[in-house]
Design a protein around this nucleic acid. Structure first.
Length: 1028
RNA sequence: GCUCGAGUGGCGGAAUUGGUAGACGCGCUGGAUUCAAAAUCCAGUUCUUUCGGGAGUGUGGGUUCGAUUCCCACCUCGAGUACCA
């Protein structure tokens, strides 16, 4: 019987679905193991072979853990809110919910074909009200929380109010806005409710504030910092500008230190930890206050080098700094204003692209150096960022290259405060290896000592203090989009109010259009039924809202929030939702479920989420932990980044030869004399011939960019000759017909070039040969294409590795692979390509290797006539092969080295085939070993061996070392470290015995050629090395 | 610029604490089978060679009996980040 993979795979996929084989238990004595894949966004394009890589790896691990006796949770779901569905809705009017549903259906079909062991009974979709009810709930809890620095965790806002009522805010240590005013308990108690709410907003973990945001006009929404790449939007690459807007923000900055510390507790790839560390950007230094001369104003600066304070010779403010307008002198007013205006006009991208140009303007004002009392000029310059620190720097040109360049450019002082350091060429920015000079009480001190001393001194004198600054900004949480979670928020008198939890979910309203309103409000502004009735606690028509200010009456009906939540809202807690299966309406997950499953043991996904999803998910987990809703502090214990699968693009080379011609015309006059003339035929017109040339004929003629090398002919002599014959036939004959008296045609100005064109990879076979007919029929423009082939008549394409994408015609669809080779082949091949973490190119040609392996595996169990497994005792060799394989495969899975275990299986099957093994004692355990990788064939063979039920939870074979014990070893014998020959020797020989035997060997004598060895190194069981 | 990661046959890659470099697979070459093709099977396949051997893991040095593996310097490619005071 043949290996009929299509039949087998369909059969077992059906079996698994019908029997709920992979449903995880919530009540069991088994140890738990939670394997999770990063949340997929169901895009319209469907999956290509690159997408399932991580899913296959996690599936192998999940299946392996089941064989090891674990209760495995391996769920899957969809991050189904998001921009593409909405963009599509804007273009077509199709409701995003419908496209999303269609896309999910397609995803599911594709995933099912690959044979994953997902527990679909726990599926999650972020756009389902049943799910986002709890996203809204978390938002409300964040609103009702503040960050207590003393306890170093989030607490309910009530504990803060209690402190205010008793003590005011003077002694409250909280993470809050910079601009909170001090008040006493009595004042607090006398504030109006609105005043109290305004103050509390400055403390809440999610708060409404006017912030400078990244506004993307093309997308009509704001973007978070991690959604911008190189100054343009990550999706679509549209320009982004700075704009002030009232927005919901998340006080993630409160968690900066804990997010940093937590990295030490988790098993994540170092580059990913590094990028989070960078993003959080902790820097230790001091906050120093400079007085402005002649004004009642201070400039606070943050510096990491307070030890260099005596080197300050000027200050620079960001052009956007609040003080700029106030302190600028009349004489400088015009220059400053035009500079500020010019900077504001420049987009963020321009500013970033142009790092080299130094620009700035003197304000005319001076600051007072806090130690020396000297007057130092205050400048503005766009190298100072408004959004970092205080938007102002104390410039120390001798110690900072940017300050140095600025000073040089504008001719400002560069005092040297380093002992024996030359700063005539550049600043000295090293911290170590130098002593401070010209700095009064800091003279002679090293960096470390000077830091301590100067901070102590500043704190004593009251104009500075030690401070840790973070680059991490609070995260903007509002999006001006339709397809996202609505906020459970309505507004009374401009103040946000939370809707009571019992009335959730607040479901997304229907709208006519998915675009912003004419007045520039977000798409929800188009909804007609989008107001909150506090009497009935229902959503009612907007018309019922009365403006209390105008009509002086309050009917209890208020407008709802028009923004929606960002994409990362739903994905920041979904891993907890999978734990709960039954009572999803009552809680986001039950206490029992949370206690049992804890957190994700293994998380596999791409590194592109380093500073987005993976940071936000950690933030929300820490918050939920602080408030006692979950009992873990980190969501993902171990994380692996799978590498990208790249496409192997195929190129055909279009060779274009173009030329002008001169015509020699002979006119016979009446008197039979002849006039010869030469003229350019149809001025400006030239002839062009396009032809496709097989890539082997182009070799060495193209440079690295695919351009034809100068002055070189692209084609060999014969090809050239043939080509011109064709040209003559096609072009010249036409000309000859048109013009009488033509005596000759001369070709002038020949240009040749070759253009590589992507050909669809499905038109190319494993030997890089193009299916010419297929190519002609592929697109209309190739219908009449002509080809110069190889001598054997084939046409070869050239190959290049690129990102897999539609536009490069190198996308490979997993469905087709499953159809032709089966899901088991796909799974094995994805793993076989190379290490999980590395980027690697896909080339469908190679899949025949693993496909052949599966057929060979099948033949070990099933002969043409029927089953061939016997009850015969296994031989020693059989057992050795099996146990070698058990050992290696187990080690490989535990090290996530899946590519090497596929090789191991191949070796195992090759050996057993050679040994003609038919023994059940060997072949039965082998099915279990293979089952995590190729589950369908494993199930089929397992059942053909007469077993009942699924192989999924059968115990993994146990490795027994005794089967690998050897009595002899084939020693490699090296001379000066180079292996020259091998010799089989018993393993129980002593070093001396080995040395004696080996020196007597005639091959040793031949190698030594009469010399006496200086030394003989014998490592028993390993190697023999003879030196001399 | 800075921070990470990686350089091994024609290609994907293997080599577990320093111990036989190139496992396994693709491709290629030759052969068997076949009317023919596909499929299958067998042999070979790092380079070089006067067929004894010699060289060889990005380059140059070092440590060692022995280095793809450890150390130093450099080159190339990839990823992330970018005026962070």
């Amino acid at each position: 019987m043949k290996y009929n993979f299509n039949e087998i795979e369909a059969k077992w996929q059906k079996y698994w679905a019908e029997n709920g084989t992979f449903h995880a238990e919530n009540n069991t004595d088994k140890p738990k193991y939670y394997v999770l894949d990063m949340f997929p966004y169901p895009s319209g394009a469907g999956l290509h072979v690159g997408h399932p890589l991580g899913y296959i790896a996690s599936d192998i691990y999940a299946r392996y853990k089941r064989h090891q006796g674990f209760n495995v949770l391996h769920p899957q779901g969809y991050d189904s809110f998001g921009l593409p569905a909405e963009q599509y809705a804007i273009q077509t009017g199709q409701h995003p919910a419908i496209t999303t549903k269609t896309n999910i259906k397609r995803y599911r079909e594709q995933l099912d074909k690959i044979g994953f062991s997902f527990d679909w009974s726990r599926e999650v979709r972020t756009s389902n009200p049943e799910y986002y009810k709890w996203t809204q709930w978390i938002f409300i809890e964040l609103f009702n929380s503040w960050y207590n620095v003393e306890t170093d965790k989030a607490e309910h806002i009530d504990t803060l109010i209690a402190k205010f009522e008793v003590d005011g805010n003077a002694n409250v240590k909280a993470v809050c806005d910079d601009d909170v005013a001090m008040f006493a308990a009595a004042e607090w108690n006398n504030y109006s409710s609105k005043e109290q709410q305004e103050i509390l907003l400055k403390y809440r973990l999610t708060y409404l504030a006017e912030t400078e945001v990244n506004w993307c006009p093309a997308l009509g929404t704001v973007l978070a910092n991690d959604e911008i790449v190189n100054g343009v939007s990550e999706r679509g690459g549209h320009p982004v500008v700075r704009k002030k807007m009232t927005q919901w923000s998340m006080r993630i900055s409160a968690y900066a230190q804990r997010l940093l510390d937590g990295l030490n507790e988790i098993d994540w790839p170092q580059p990913l930890k590094d990028s989070q560390t960078n993003w959080i950007g902790r820097s230790q230094g001091a906050m120093v206050t400079f007085k402005v001369d002649g004004h009642d104003a201070n400039i606070d600066v943050f510096t990491t080098r307070p030890d260099t304070i005596y080197g300050v010779s000027f200050m620079t403010l960001a052009p956007e700094h609040d003080l700029v307008a106030k302190i600028t002198t009349a004489a400088q007013k015009e220059a400053v204003e035009s500079y500020v205006e010019a900077t504001a006009k420049r987009s963020e991208r321009e500013r970033m692209a142009d790092v080299k140009t130094i620009s700035g303007v003197f304000t005319g004002a001076h600051a007072i150096h806090p130690f020396t009392g000297e007057k130092i000029p205050i400048w503005i310059g766009d190298y100072v960022l408004a959004s970092y620190g205080t938007g102002a720097v104390m410039a120390v040109p001798c110690g900072d290259q940017r300050d140095y360049d600025f000073a040089k450019h504008f001719g400002l002082d560069i005092p040297n405060i380093f002992e024996n350091v030359d700063i005539s060429e550049e600043a000295y920015s090293e911290k170590e290896g130098v002593k401070i000079a010209n700095s009064d009480f800091l003279n002679g001190l090293t960096y470390k000592k000077a830091m301590k001393t100067v901070i102590y001194e500043m704190e004593k004198r009251g104009f500075g203090k030690g401070k840790i600054n973070y680059r991490l900004r609070d995260a903007v949480f509002s999006r001006q989009r339709y397809w996202g979670e609505p906020f459970p928020v309505y507004y009374v008198d401009g103040m946000p109010q939370m809707i009571d939890v019992q009335h959730l979910p607040i479901t997304l309203p229907e709208v006519e259009k998915y675009l912003p309103t004419e007045t520039g409000e977000p798409p929800l502004g188009n909804a007609e039924v989008w107001a909150w009735d506090t009497n009935t606690n229902t959503i009612v028509s907007n018309e019922l809202v009365t403006s209390s200010a105008v009509e002086k009456q309050d009917n209890g009906i208020y407008p709802l929030e028009l923004n929606t939540m960002p994409g990362w809202a739903g994905s920041s807690w979904y891993f907890f939702r999978y734990m709960e299966k039954a009572l999803r309406d009552e809680h986001f997950a039950s206490k029992e479920a949370l206690d049992y499953w804890q957190n994700v043991d293994l998380y596999i996904g791409g590194s592109e989420h380093a500073t987005g999803h993976l940071l936000y998910a950690r933030f929300w987990t820490k918050f939920l932990h602080d408030r006692g809703f979950v009992n873990v502090d980190e969501p993902f214990k171990k994380l692996i980044n799978q590498g990208m699968i790249l496409g192997t693009s195929a190129f055909v080379h279009k060779f274009i030869i173009s030329y002008n011609i001169d015509l020699k015309i002979t006119v016979e006059t009446n008197d039979n004399s002849k006039i010869h003339s030469t003229k350019k035929y149809k001025n400006g017109k030239y002839y062009k011939k396009e032809i496709y040339v097989s890539s082997d004929r182009l070799e060495d003629l193209l440079d690295s960019k695919g351009q034809v090398l100068e002055k070189k002919f692209l084609l060999n002599e014969i090809d050239r000759e043939n080509l011109f014959k064709t040209i003559e036939k096609e072009h010249f004959n036409i000309i000859r017909k048109e013009i009488d008296f033509l005596s000759d045609i001369e070709i002038v100005e020949i240009t040749e070039r070759a253009i590589p064109i992507h050909a669809d990879v499905s038109l190319v076979n494993s030997s890089d040969e193009l299916d010419i007919e297929g190519f002609k029929n592929w697109r209309a423009e190739f219908k009449d294409a002509e080809f110069i082939c190889e001598d054997d008549g084939t046409f070869k394409v050239s190959r290049e590795v690129e990102k897999m994408s539609k536009s490069k015609y190198n996308v490979v669809n997993p469905d087709e692979i499953c159809e032709t080779y089966g899901a088991d082949s796909l799974r094995l091949y994805e793993m076989f390509l190379g290490p999980l973490e590395q980027a690697k190119p896909w080339n469908t040609a190679g899949i025949t290797g693993v496909f052949g392996f599966l057929k060979k595996l099948w033949k070990l169990y099933v002969a043409d006539e029927g089953p061939k497994v016997t009850e015969t005792e296994p031989t020693k060799d059989n057992l050795k092969t099996l146990h070698k394989t058990i050992k290696k495969v187990q080690e490989d899975i535990e090290n996530f080295s899946f590519n090497t275990s596929v090789s191991t299986f191949m070796i195992c099957v090759n050996e057993l085939t050679d040994q003609k093994c038919t023994s059940r004692a060997i072949l039965e355990p082998l099915t279990i070993l293979v089952s995590p990788y190729a589950p369908h064939i494993a199930e089929e063979l397992w059942s053909r061996l007469g077993n009942e039920g699924s192989i999924a939870t059968v115990k993994f074979p146990v490795f027994e070392a005794r089967h690998l014990v050897e009595s002899s070893k084939e020693y490699p014998v090296s001379f000066n470290g180079k292996m020259r020959f091998k010799k089989e020797l018993p393993l129980d020989l002593s070093k001396e015995e080995i040395e004696k035997i080996i020196l007597e060997d005639e091959r040793t004598q031949a190698q030594l050629n009469g010399r006496t060895p200086k030394r003989v190194i014998v490592v028993p069981g390993k190697i023999i090395n003879i030196v001399g």
